[in-house]
Design a protein around this nucleic acid. Structure first.
Lengths: 229, 229
DNA sequence: TTGTCAATTCTTGTATCCCAGATTGAATAC
DNA sequence: GTATTCAATCTGGGATACAAGAATTGACAA
């Protein structure tokens, strides 16, 4: 018998609470500045305050909430500095991954990218943003895999998550799909051509697609931001 | 009245505990695999288990300890994968920072680097590793500042801390000083010359200086490592 | 001597209680 | 009417007590 892992309705109390709050916050259902109380959450989950406290510590370490002792705990506001840092790290890692991908690209790798591109065009034609989202994820992961730097994608994903919350405020994600597919196409061509600089340039251009979104959100939703750096 | 910040003997209990354990672990006074008990630490600090638990959560999030429920908590072993990831991120960020530094370098920036170099040579001549260590820190920070990417250095520092623990096992750090200063010299020259590729190459070479150390430690101290990837 | 099993004793997880600081709003003095 | 003060109340911080799981150690039998 393989030994059942039990886990009746999740795992531990704190994990369930962390998961719940994480999703609430990153999906922007809980807006920055929202105050959350240990007691409330404890009541909502039918547990004592202790697990909630630990969950809070977790989320605080993730920079998602701000615990102000004796005052209150609230959903952390977005920080321009943090976003810029994230943006920079992502660009640096993405560039490095692309250079490695160019170095290690072979015929099979080229086909992998082309296959993903085809699927993306299909999703684009069907205006299936959900599918495209997954394919976008796969594309960048594949680039990292081709470059034999799997950890690069971990970093990219981590940094991406940090700004994903913000993008929930942006509208009309569907409109940007064609542009993104074009970018992927250019990146693929550059990698297949073995042109590292062109691949990096395309990758960097690809990243700038986010900048406008961020800028407009920053203006329209200034209340959710913290520093004005 | 400026309002005294109190803080009798530090800050909060958990912060003191985190600081203590952090130093113990990163200085390798507590070796990987060492078991630590909430009760013990609580007793040692004269507090209850609660603050200790929170401190543990912190350290677990930093990947320094491993909490195994109902079993025990122990100092986390070193992970080859984590080291490679850290190494990659650092290289990527360092490269990006160097490119930016080249872009923004002016006469004043050049003098800053030269000044640091002179101090480093002085420390080298005096075999003052402690001073050199600080100057090395300053050098890389200055590069990031020149490139107007201050957050880059934050990342570099964070990643550096992750492998610093490991370097405690290495000996004869003094012997590598001349090589490191030479590297800094080459990096400075390349930046001043406005040659981005040369600067990046020099920076990458600089990073490889660590690789031998890591490799030898990995062999000599295999017991402290986790995965054998 | 060795293998098995059970009780004991560790470990962390959770609940409950009390405490101190901070906010807030009402009452009071001006 | 305005400003100040003080107390009720809400916040998180910490201590203690209890629960549950895993490892260890001991006895006992083969």
């Amino acid at each position: 018998m393989p030994k059942v892992e039990t886990a009746p309705e999740g795992r531990s109390s704190v994990e369930r609470i962390v998961d719940f709050l994480y999703k609430e916050i990153t999906s922007m259902r809980m807006l920055p500045g929202t105050r959350i109380s240990e007691t409330d959450i404890a009541g909502k989950f039918g547990v004592s305050r202790q697990p909630v406290r630990e969950a809070f510590t977790h989320l605080a370490n993730m920079d998602l909430i701000l615990v102000r002792p004796k005052r209150a705990t609230e959903v952390k506001k977005l920080s321009i500095k943090a976003i810029e840092k994230s943006r920079f790290v992502r660009a640096a890692v993405e560039a490095a991954a692309l250079r490695e991908a160019v170095k290690h690209c072979d015929a099979a790798a080229g086909f992998q990218l082309e296959a993903l591109l085809a699927l993306q065009k299909k999703a684009l034609a069907e205006r299936d943003y959900r599918a495209f989202s997954k394919l976008d994820y796969d594309f960048h992961k594949t680039v990292c895999d081709i470059g034999k730097v799997p950890y690069a994608f971990e970093v990219i994903r981590e940094e991406k998550e940090k700004v994903d919350r913000l993008c929930m405020l942006g509208l009309a994600k569907e409109d940007r799909m064609p542009l993104l597919v074009e970018d992927h196409e250019e990146i693929t061509d550059a990698i297949k051509a073995g042109d590292a600089e062109r691949a990096v340039d395309a990758g960097m251009l690809h990243l700038t697609r986010l900048d406008d979104t961020i800028k407009s959100i920053r203006i329209n939703s200034a209340a959710y931001f913290d520093d004005n750096a």
